[in-house]
Design a protein around this nucleic acid. Sequence first.
DNA 1: GGTAGACCTGGACGC
DNA 2: GCGTCCAGGTCTACC
Length: 293
Amino acid sequence: MRFSLPVPPSFSLPAVIRSHGWVQLAPYDSQDPYHAFAYVDRLANGRVVAYEVQPAAEGVQVTTETMLSEEERAELAHKLAWMLNLERDLEPFYTFARQEPKLAHVVEKGEGRILRSPTLFEDTVKTILTTNTSWGGTRRMVSALVDLYGEPVGEDPAPRAFPTAQALAAADAASLRDEAKLGYRAPYVSELARRVARGDLELEAYKTADLPTGELRKELLAIKGVGAYAAANLLMLLGRTDAIPIDSYALKVVSNEFHDGQPVTPADVTAAFERFGEWQGMAFWFWSYGEET
DNA sequence: GGTAGACCTGGACGC
DNA sequence: GCGTCCAGGTCTACC
């Protein structure tokens, strides 16, 4: 079955898909690189659905081989609105961007929305798995979690949904470490899953929390395995546009862009984008590094 | 508050 | 093929 979702005037599906590497992490898949994507989701009633999202004249088109009830379709639409950041009003950011040559392209290309997962739990696990490893390592670890603990769509072993907190909480810690190859990150993921499964940590509530960014950052830093970089990355995914996820890549590009390749500190990265105030995270993320204007 | 070392894996490199 | 080194963030112990 097919159904469409309306999108804001400035929306660009390729721009959202290209916003970062999440589309390369299971259960995302992109056969048509950066124009469309596939995803596998587990609905609230336990049904696992594989679907594709493509650009369409009236917005985006969702296609699935599964016949969905009206309630299921509404749930999927609600989740996709979050994943594609459809509710975001980018005009205030675009007003800034139009005045900065290194950001002018975001307006032209409809950039500014960042692809995310249906749940903050999935995004938090994936963020932990980006730390202290290569991108290839992250992809491997995420795929292993999906293959080992995710629920399949039907009888076939693949494709599978991202595992629930309950599934990961029930997993043997040694299996997480040795079979999923999470290494020392295994206890972090295990503890996070257990806290979420028990209801001790209401991660999803952070999506709509009215907390100042500093307070929310403290809450995220209290999660084992989430340090300064991971917290900033999650804040960015939560739409907190004043957070800059400073990792080794950030230090490198800021060094090259603003300091002639000389070594820089996290404070230098912050200083480089401070003038963008509440939009400094977006300015950092969408900056045209190394390109002449 | 700041710093050093451990954690784990894969890739690059030299032999 | 094997061994060594390094990159990549976070945690913990220590000062």
